[in-house]
Amino acid sequence: MSAVDPTPIETTAAPGAGTWKRLVRNRLAAAGLVVLAFVLLVATIAPLLPLPDPDTVDASRRLEGVGSPGAPLGTDHLGRDMLSRLVWGARVSLAVGVFATLIAAFIGSLIGLFAGFYGRIVDSALMRSVDVLMAFPYLLLAIGLVAVLGPGLINAMIAISVVNIPFFARAVRGATVTLVSSEYVDAARALAFSRMRILFREVLPNVLPVIIVTMSTTVGWMITETAGLSFLGLGAQPPTSDWGTMLGAGRDFITRAPHVSIVPGAAIFLVVISLNFVGDGLRDALDPKLK
């Protein structure tokens, strides 16, 4: 028990700068950041790279293996260059995964925050609506939404966002409910803070880790869920390809030419695991207790 004298602690820097420093000090998170930065960079400058056209079919070069001359990652069943398709597919997959996650996280977190904060009828109304969403098998719901909106990448993205709202809403509501009854929220009420101020300044920062971790796991699902829709012909329309479509296309040749599915699969794996490392790192970096 230290009565009055504090244990000596290094002086604290400004929160913003400290968060970044703590994030990159975490090796896994730093590695994840490097991978993500590389993928993002490559996807962004894809038009400038000396790559063959990803949609050019060459029947004479079908299913060539990894390391073939002129096709470092081989070719698919239509003789298209895998590396080029991977790079161009990254643009689609990352855009869909990230935007769908942001949309789902934004709407889902707001629902969860309001439900947990206001309780009673607001809680019941919001969470029962979310339960309705959850009651559908996710793919069925996504297909239903796409059927209404029409096929296409943007609509697939919207459908995937809606399907993932419940995960955010439930996780955030759970965290909010426990925080709302904490005494520092009572203290904020005693200081006559407005409800919005309490919700967004006192509660939200403490719910943020939950949102971040849920987001980092969700991006991966999103990419594969979009793949599912694309596979059913409801997502990316040919010849546009995202990683999910490529993965699905390789299914028929899994024994003869495994690289057609392994290459996009490995790319998804790499991005998802990097996101998870960064997400965990960010959660810890944002926690003042773990400085």
């Binding site: 904490s182 005494e183 520092y184 009572d186 203290a187 005693a190 200081l191 006559a192 920062p205 003042p288």
Partner: peptide, 18 residues
């Protein structure tokens, strides 16, 4: 609120950890 204030029992949960 600027006249009357409250001091809570539990000094651990009454301060926002962030």
């Amino acid at each position: 609120a600027s006249r009357v204030q409250f001091v809570f029992q539990d000094p651990y949960s009454s301060l926002n950890p962030r």
